[in-house]
Design a binder for these strands. Structure first.
Lengths: 348, 348
DNA sequence: TTGAAAGCGCTAACAT
DNA sequence: ATGTTAGCGCTTTCAA
């Protein structure tokens, strides 16, 4: 850290005391108009831009909101981050992002590190942190919002929806559309707990109708490669493998839209009609699906809004200092059946 | 910022002085093994995790690397961020991200704000910052690496490639594959300077062969909507519009892969053979394309590697303190013609 | 409306 | 190997 212009330099240049300079720059009242201008101009002239360390150390106060996400490879999380960023725009707070790679140990370390920056609030993805991490969050002494999942016990506040319910609901919708022979394509389920919950919810709904997945294909849990390949491609390959083993499926549920879209790509290449021969269902409602509108059923998640809402909840708590934060905010995904809806109506 | 455990608490709990506690926690040598353990255990027991403000203020040193990207909606930038994160993993440095929404004013403010955190280095997307921003970067007194573009004058170091050359090169490759009637589909060109450079390079190459775009379609420059829709969808619609006006095109160049993929989706739905009836070319080499391997020609950019390389360059400068940083690192995109290559060989 | 003094929690530099 | 002293640059508090 190179030493640079300090408040003292500004004060000297403006011919006032450090305190007056400090007050003028922060917009404190009780500073004469003359001095405000004099100080601000001096600051600009000598290229002064403050020192957050000194400021925060002295004031015991920061404007940082720590945001922890599992991955940057899945576009969903950058979208959450964008939501947080947008909601914080124009406020004094600013987000600081951390990435865990779906690794609990990394998550713990990331949080410890964030706490050493004394953030004004914390937004953490997921609700199933290990005990030690939960303890860290509880003791943090700042508002904590867990996002994306509500199936479990939040440390404090929580924004998201139930993934097992989401899986359950789309299974019901697909069943009611007349589909009976289900297959499943997933990936990374050992680490992606929320995807696992969806699968489980789906299975439970099938059980209620005396059904089960006819076949399950699981992809590798390794990260996407450097070029970002793989999610769609993986879906394509797994779908090909699944349909080879079980050609008479009438519906495949995927752990997300990327995989489902890969499945669609396979079907188109192989001349399989979708959803006529086989229906495909994914999860998230990504822009990807707009390429073939209505071809893939999905649950549209409000991920950007989740980020916004979480940020707003922290904002409120910080501003009203009293803990008036709502503890639970559900943004339930909306099911979109696409072309299946027509088929369903015809059938019904 | 709530007041929490301090070094003094740890020292008291361990029965040593603050200095010994400080040294023990930071892994300084010249501390007895007994005390190291005593202090570390005391720290864990009382839940101490340091105060970066005090530490950095005192030591005049930070571990922060500021990383500024224009957008989170375009998966390319999260991939760059992932590269930076990976390269910094295991080092003492850590990234802090800022987003500009392609707005120069926001970029300036973001950088000012980052500088108030006295980062050890800065990674900034793009090379065409306005004069005031350039000045800020020059005066920052920390290593600065501009990424993704080398067409211009870097403030200091630079990692990326020439976009005009990239546009030029793929135009040549497509020309040599026998294509002659070119159309163009772009979006956001007023703000995305690099996309504009590619288009310009493409046009220049066409001119060299006495050709020009037969038709150009420009999409809206607004951001993607909340659900992340739009990039692929926009490509689909623009392609439909373009082909309606100019049905005899034999190739369409898109400002990126998302749009190109949308174009492919349109062609498949409309029964247009790709690349037989019309060839499509995009830019980036996204995972998207794996859905229909080889259907879309593209320039594969090494965006994750660019992030990694930029981070490594800053690491080196920081570690060797002397400015031994290489000033220019080119990671040229690799052209992939896909199925066009076969056609080309047949033709040649 | 302004300024002087004190101290935030830590570490560098100098003792011992 | 350990402790003491003196700040880092700012803001809070109190006095004028």
């Amino acid at each position: 850290m190179k030493s640079r212009k300090t408040l003292a330099d500004v004060a000297a240049a403006a011919g006032v005391s450090k305190m007056t300079a400090s007050r003028a720059l922060r917009g404190d009242k009780d500073v004469s108009q003359t001095n405000i201008e004099r100080v601000k101009q001096a600051a600009r002239q000598i290229g002064y831009y403050g020192n957050q360390f000194a400021s925060s150390l002295s004031s015991k106060h920061t404007d940082l909101i720590g945001v922890v996400v599992p991955s940057l490879s899945n576009i969903v999380f950058p979208q959450v981050m964008a939501g947080v960023t947008d909601a914080l725009k124009g406020t004094l707070l600013q987000p600081v992002f951390g990435v865990t790679d779906y690794d609990p140990e990394t998550e713990y370390e990331t949080l410890r590190n964030m706490l050493s920056w004394r953030p004004a609030g914390l937004i953490v993805t997921g609700i199933d942190q290990p005990p030690e991490t939960r303890q860290l969050l509880k003791d943090a002494g700042v508002p904590v919002v867990q996002i994306m999942d509500i199936d479990g016990h939040p440390v404090d506040a929580c924004v998201g929806f139930s993934h097992s319910e989401a899986g359950h609901d789309i299974a019901v919708a697909l069943f009611e559309a007349g589909l009976r022979r289900f297959g499943y394509v997933g990936r990374n389920l050992d680490k992606d707990l929320r995807a696992a919950k969806r699968k489980q919810g789906f299975q439970s709904a099938l059980r209620d109708h005396g059904l089960a997945f006819a076949e399950i294909v699981d992809g590798p849990s390794q990260q996407v490669d450097a070029a970002g390949r793989s999610a769609v491609d993986c879906g394509r390959k797994l779908t090909a493998a699944l349909l080879e083993r079980q050609p008479d499926l009438d519906c495949i549920y995927f752990s997300n839209d990327d995989l489902a879209f890969g499945g669609l790509c396979h079907c188109i290449s192989a001349g399989i009609s979708v959803p006529g021969d086989v229906a495909l269902a994914g999860f998230n409602g990504l822009g990807l699906l707009e390429g073939f509108p209505g071809k893939i059923a999905t649950s549209r998640t409000a991920r950007k809004q989740i980020g916004e809402q979480a940020a707003r909840m922290i904002l409120e708590t910080v501003e009203h200092s009293a803990a008036k934060m709502e503890k639970l905010h559900i943004l339930k995904p909306e099911i979109s059946l696409g072309e299946l809806a027509r088929i369903k109506n015809k059938a019904g």
